[in-house]
Simulated assay, not measured.
Amino acid sequence: MGSIGHPVCTKRFPLNNGGTIPAVGLGTWQGKAGTDNAEELHNSIVYALRAGYRLIDTAQLYEVESIVGSAIRASGVPRSEITVVTKFWGEWHHDPAAALEKSLRELDIDYIDIFLMHWPWATSPDGKKVIAPDESPTFIETWKAMEKLVGEKCRAIGVSNFSQKTLEALLREAKIVPVVNQVELHALNPCLNLVPYCESKGIRVMSWSTMGGGGLHSPIAREVLTNKLFTDIAAKHHCSVGVVSLSWAVQRGIIVIPKSSSRERIDTNIRLVTLTDEEMNAINNAQHTIGKFRIADHIKFMQREFRGKKTLMGWTPEDFGWEDSQGNWLT
């Protein structure tokens, strides 16, 4: 199976600031500078840009911004044609302006297209102390500081890992509506409530781990690539199993940013297929037929014992707005 017969996806989605964004981009979360993977990442970005990709997603946490910037310059593709998205981590919530300067310096580019708050939670400036959801700087205070950044060096701002609950709180006080909300979204965590909510507010959803994270965190997550539901659809459309999930998301109006160092998969991931309504519904219901799974619950370095509870950086699933007090999923 491969991409034979499937054209490169050049689809773009409108954003609430009057701009547009490619439906398919390249993720860059592996290959930090100084490691054996650095050159591989650099080459994969150059290859992707030359193959037609026009969206690159990165983050300060990944420690690859310098590689991303270098690859953009080496690609020969005009900077004006590329949408660059990056994100700042919790220690910068007190000073997003300094975070922006850090990313501009690392990327060595004149401007960032979309600058995201990576999570709603904050830490102390040294990164050692978790700050409770109700303590300063709250994500609302951080957002108000981000609003001042929009201009020549920062064309748009957005959020990541926000739910209806946190967005509702943000929008009550925001002067600028986030252009995107980048969230975990795959067949076992399809965000069937969150996506239409964001659409109603003019916020474009961007998906991370659209293929379930490859089973890195739990065997059930591998089902997105191995279960008969997905392999049968892939066989029918003469495409890779991964492309089934990417196509499902884009068909829902969601931006996808698959990470790959394989040239074959880079070529394949941007060649989407059109799924039938029946196939779309079957994937939407995979959370019931296969099971629910949230990757975020298994990110070990973010797990903290806080105020006598197991949390992610001081936040419970209820704080995030992922679940209600009875444990029912809300997104």
Rank of each mutant, 00 (worst) to 15 (best):
G202R: 14
K148W: 05
D126P: 02
C191M: 06
T83A: 05
S75Q: 08
V159M: 10
P137T: 03
Q164G: 00
P120S: 11
L149D: 05
C154M: 12
H118L: 06
T166W: 05
F115T: 02
S70A: 11
R204F: 02
S160V: 01
L188M: 05
V68L: 10
Y111N: 02
A71C: 07
I157E: 01
V180T: 14
A145V: 00
S136T: 13
G69T: 01
I114A: 09
E184I: 01
G158I: 02
I72P: 01
L170M: 13
G127R: 12
D95N: 15
E106R: 14
D110W: 02
S70G: 09
L171M: 04
L170H: 14
T123F: 11
K201G: 13
I157M: 05
H94T: 02
R204E: 03
K128W: 01
N189Y: 09
A132V: 00
W89F: 15
S160C: 15
P196Q: 12
T123R: 14
D126K: 07
G202D: 14
W121F: 03
F115D: 07
K144T: 01
E184R: 08
I140W: 04
G90F: 06
Y111E: 01
S200R: 11
G69Q: 07
A74S: 11
H93S: 11
E168N: 05
V130G: 05
R155A: 03
L171N: 06
L107T: 08
I131A: 11
N161Q: 08
P120W: 12
S163W: 08
P120R: 13
G127N: 07
L188S: 01
K201L: 12
W92I: 01
I82H: 06
L185H: 12
V177M: 08
I176M: 06
I157F: 04
K175P: 06
A132W: 05
R73C: 01
A71M: 10
A74E: 11
F139Q: 04
V84R: 04
E141T: 06
V195D: 02
E152H: 14
W143K: 15
F88I: 03
P120N: 12
R155G: 03
K175L: 13
D126F: 05
E135P: 05
F88W: 10
S70K: 12
L116W: 08
L100E: 14
V150F: 13
R155F: 04
Q164A: 00
D126W: 02
K129H: 10
A74V: 00
H93L: 09
K148N: 11
V85R: 06
F88D: 07
W121K: 00
V85K: 05
E106L: 15
F115W: 13
M146D: 04
